[in-house]
Amino acid sequence: MDQYQEYTLEDFVLDARFQGWVRHQEATDAVFWKQYIDENPLQADDIRSAHKLLDGVYRHYRTEIDEVEIDLEIQGLLERVRTEKLLGLRTEEKEYGRREERIVSEPLKLNESRVVSESGRSVWFGSAFWTRVAACLVLAIGLGWIGWRYYRFNDGYNGLVSGKGLVERVNTSGKQQVIKLADGTQVVLYPQSRLSFAETFQPDQRIVYLSGDAYFQVAKDPKRPFLVHTTDLVTKVLGTSFFVRAQDASDKTLVEVREGKVSVFKQKEFAARKNAQAKTPNGMVLTPNQKLIFEHASSEMRRTLSDNPEIVPSDNPKTFEFVNTPASSVLTDIEEAYQIDIIFDRDVMKGCPVTASLGGQPMFSKLSILCEVIEARYEVLDGKIVIYSRGCKS
């Protein structure tokens, strides 16, 4: 925490971790900053002010706006910046004249600092000046956020589909729309989403372009992989069910698998191939109940589990009714039902009898109940579950 002790209001506004706390409101960040304020009460006012300024920007630009509104918003912000700077200069000129007269007789006031210019003149910076600086910083952040959204909207999806002569489906309604493609693939297109595709797919691959949210049930065709292009990612499958969330105005892209396997690549690396037959770059493989989160700011792909994993349809469904059943067998049943890798010590678990009725419980509830019975704990790591246990209750 020492790095923040010299921070002022504008430093907090520009700090990436501070911005993440205001924007995403993660519980861990809230605990960190509460502890920091408690330990550094002299900075509390600056932290609260910076929080309010950033929160106003993020709340204002969280809603969807179209290109015309973006242009108008940019022009409006620019005008406010120009006006603020002009007023600031005029105010500084007047203040400078008045302060020159009383510079000898008046002591240095709190919240003001003085520097000497090369010409020898003393220039004063008061709290009003720093308020204007903070306002300009926040407006600059807002402009950057709008510019980023504008770039993603025009050079993202639009850049991918430009000049390709594709059919486009746009869902402007408030309900999901079902689109059936020429190969038999079914796409559920969510509201405010767009999908572009060729009327007839190529003989060696099937390509679609997505902006927004969609659920795909891809028809199996081993000879023709199915590719979903978004601004940042390419998802490649042969035949499976998966969900893609790729809003151009969002700071994340998500791919979540329901059945089968998919491979996900960064768009830039995939596009860098010299031709369609070139070697595919290393991607990340997802299996059922796994999801990938791509952070636009860091360009990092992170694999984890779905928020609510679902049982994968099977010819031999599990009942999850256990009577003196070894914990290792219970974990194996959960692993097979959800098709999620569970890492545990079988020698330790096989000696732990479990009697429980877990049918109807969500997967994470099943794991919590089991871990309580056998005095263990679990953790999700890279889309897998790791069970930690020293043994069973005596």
Results as ranks from 00 to 15, higher is better:
residue 272 A to V: 10
residue 192 Q to D: 14
residue 275 N to F: 09
residue 195 L to Y: 04
residue 265 F to W: 07
residue 262 V to L: 10
residue 274 K to Y: 08
residue 259 E to N: 07
residue 319 T to I: 01
residue 277 Q to A: 15
residue 204 D to E: 12
residue 190 Y to E: 13
residue 323 V to I: 01
residue 262 V to G: 10
residue 185 T to S: 14
residue 291 K to G: 14
residue 301 M to V: 11
residue 324 N to I: 02
residue 325 T to M: 06
residue 253 T to I: 12
residue 212 G to T: 02
residue 215 Y to H: 03
residue 272 A to P: 10
residue 322 F to S: 05
residue 257 V to F: 08
residue 225 P to T: 12
residue 253 T to L: 10
residue 231 T to E: 15
residue 224 R to G: 12
residue 199 E to L: 08
residue 292 L to M: 08
residue 243 F to N: 15
residue 325 T to P: 00
residue 244 V to A: 05
residue 319 T to R: 01
residue 287 T to M: 00
residue 242 F to N: 06
residue 306 S to C: 11
residue 202 Q to S: 15
residue 277 Q to C: 06
residue 308 N to E: 13
residue 238 L to Q: 08
residue 209 Y to P: 03
residue 253 T to Y: 08
residue 260 G to P: 12
residue 327 A to C: 04
residue 235 T to F: 05
residue 302 R to T: 14
residue 183 D to C: 12
residue 183 D to P: 13
residue 315 D to N: 04
residue 296 H to M: 14
residue 286 L to S: 12
residue 212 G to W: 01
residue 313 P to S: 00
residue 251 D to S: 07
residue 315 D to T: 06
residue 241 S to P: 11
residue 266 K to F: 06
residue 247 Q to T: 14
residue 314 S to P: 08
residue 319 T to L: 00
residue 204 D to G: 09
residue 321 E to Q: 08
residue 221 D to K: 05
residue 229 H to Q: 13
residue 302 R to I: 15
residue 270 F to I: 13
residue 306 S to F: 03
residue 261 K to D: 11
residue 208 V to Y: 08
residue 265 F to K: 05
residue 230 T to F: 07
residue 224 R to D: 09
residue 310 E to W: 00
residue 229 H to G: 05
residue 222 P to R: 02
residue 246 A to K: 02
residue 234 V to D: 06
residue 318 K to R: 00
residue 244 V to S: 03
residue 205 Q to V: 01
residue 189 L to P: 09
residue 218 V to I: 05
residue 279 K to T: 14
residue 295 E to K: 01
residue 208 V to T: 09
residue 196 S to T: 06
residue 185 T to K: 01
residue 321 E to L: 00
residue 196 S to W: 00
residue 193 S to W: 09
residue 324 N to Q: 12
residue 183 D to M: 12
residue 314 S to R: 05
residue 260 G to K: 07
residue 290 Q to C: 09
residue 310 E to C: 11
residue 319 T to S: 01
residue 245 R to N: 11
residue 250 S to G: 10
residue 253 T to F: 04
residue 278 A to Y: 06
residue 321 E to I: 06
residue 242 F to W: 08
residue 212 G to A: 01
residue 220 K to R: 11
residue 283 G to R: 05
residue 202 Q to M: 05
residue 186 Q to V: 15
residue 210 L to W: 01
residue 235 T to I: 12
residue 235 T to S: 14
residue 266 K to I: 08
residue 282 N to Q: 07
residue 309 P to C: 11
residue 273 R to N: 11
residue 323 V to H: 01
residue 284 M to D: 03
residue 256 E to G: 09
residue 196 S to E: 07
residue 185 T to P: 13
residue 227 L to H: 10
residue 198 A to W: 00
residue 281 P to G: 14
residue 319 T to Y: 01
residue 288 P to R: 06
residue 288 P to A: 07
residue 300 E to A: 14
residue 319 T to M: 02
residue 272 A to Y: 03
residue 299 S to H: 11
residue 274 K to E: 15
residue 238 L to F: 12
residue 271 A to H: 13
residue 250 S to Y: 04
residue 324 N to R: 00
residue 315 D to Q: 09
residue 230 T to I: 03
residue 253 T to E: 15
residue 316 N to L: 00
residue 212 G to E: 02
residue 325 T to N: 04
residue 324 N to K: 01
residue 318 K to P: 02
residue 275 N to Q: 00
residue 288 P to N: 03
residue 309 P to N: 09
residue 256 E to N: 10
residue 265 F to S: 08
